[in-house]
């Protein structure tokens, strides 16, 4: 298992390098640049600006400098669009924000979605099953740009319980609504996924064996059925968790949280190559970490997978 983990970690660096090279050239292929505007800058000014950001050099030299700075000094370069800020600054400011509400959102998704799914499966075709399935479908088709204003309408304008936006260092009042707005549709997916796999597991022959042993229903669910029933949810949550902790543009904009979801979109609009590349690397590293974690958890649950790893 340790061996496997080390092997996976060794793969990270070459993969990241390939990703950086690809992303670097692809971005440059897109028309326009960070300093293009409706009224073109005078050529002399443009030359100055390009020189300041090192963009007068050939592309491969720029790429080399970029990679070298990351490796030697963990320096992802200056932002092209936000004056006097480096990419490190932008991520250091924005990522904790999305990490916070994304994390709590994921907690909300799991803590609510899994039990709902299990209860629905246990009450298969009963009142709670239909209620849960109905709610799940409803919240899955309910887009967050409708849900978020609704939350603000109720919690801020009607009841005055929660602030309608802002971040304020991540006090809990400011985290609640972004987390719910971001997580609701995932929560519904997790509930449906858990319900489906729990139903399948409960119908499996080995659960019948467990029943034939005369074990109480509770033990059968917790000891025999829960682990296998959670496998699909686990697979699903890996990439979703990355998506959640890197934030959503909509949530960042609507609640003015100042997370990196917003930075990513702004970066794309203003061709801020440095920001885009920095964020792409962040996404890649997180995806690596999460898929590795999911795989290890999988191996922990499923002895067959574990045997395959060593």
């Amino acid at each position: 298992m340790l061996n496997y983990t080390l092997r996976r970690l060794l793969m990270v660096l070459p993969t990241l390098l390939i990703l950086v090279i690809f992303a670097f050239y692809l971005m440059r292929l897109a028309p326009g640049g960070p300093f293009t505007s409706e009224r073109p800058l005078p050529p002399s000014v443009m030359a100055n600006v390009l020189e300041r950001y090192g963009m007068d050099e050939p592309l491969h030299v720029q790429l080399w400098t970029y990679v070298k700075n990351i490796v030697c000094c963990f320096d992802f370069g200056p932002s092209f669009s936000q004056k006097d800020r480096t990419v490190n600054d932008v991520i250091a400011q924005g990522f904790p924000v999305t990490l916070t509400y994304g994390f709590w959102s994921a907690v909300f998704v799991l803590v609510l979605g899994i039990p709902l799914g299990i209860i629905a499966a246990l009450r298969h075709n009963g009142f709670w099953d239909y209620t849960m399935t109905g709610l799940a479908i409803f919240s899955q088709i309910f887009p967050n740009f409708v849900l978020a204003p609704l939350l603000v309408l109720l919690f801020t304008l009607s009841w005055g319980l929660l602030p309608g936006g802002g971040w304020n260092g991540g006090q809990w009042q400011y985290v609640v609504m972004p987390a719910i707005a971001l997580g609701t549709s995932y929560m519904a997916s997790v509930a449906r996924l858990t319900r489906g796999s729990m139903l399948e597991v409960l119908n499996s022959p080995y659960i019948r064996t467990a029943r034939a042993k005369g074990l109480p229903e509770r033990t059968i669910i917790m000891r025999h059925a829960l682990k296998p029933a959670l496998l699909p949810t686990l697979t699903y949550m890996g990439p979703v968790f990355v998506y959640m902790i890197t934030g959503s543009v909509f949530v960042d904009v609507f609640f003015s949280t100042g997370g990196i979801g917003q930075d990513f979109i702004n970066g794309a609009y203003s061709r801020d190559y440095a920001i885009l590349l920095g964020l792409a690397i962040l996404y890649a590293v997180l995806t690596f970490a999460l898929t590795l974690m999911v795989d290890l958890l999988y191996a922990w649950i499923d002895p067959k997978v574990r045997a395959g790893l060593s």
Binding site: R208, T209, H224, K227, D302
Partner: peptide, 16 residues
């Protein structure tokens, strides 16, 4: 009363 099921491949819990 004990019971022995037909298919030993699927009647044991693979995760335990």
């Amino acid at each position: 009363i004990g019971i022995i099921f037909q298919d030993p491949m699927s009647s044991l819990n693979p995760y335990m």
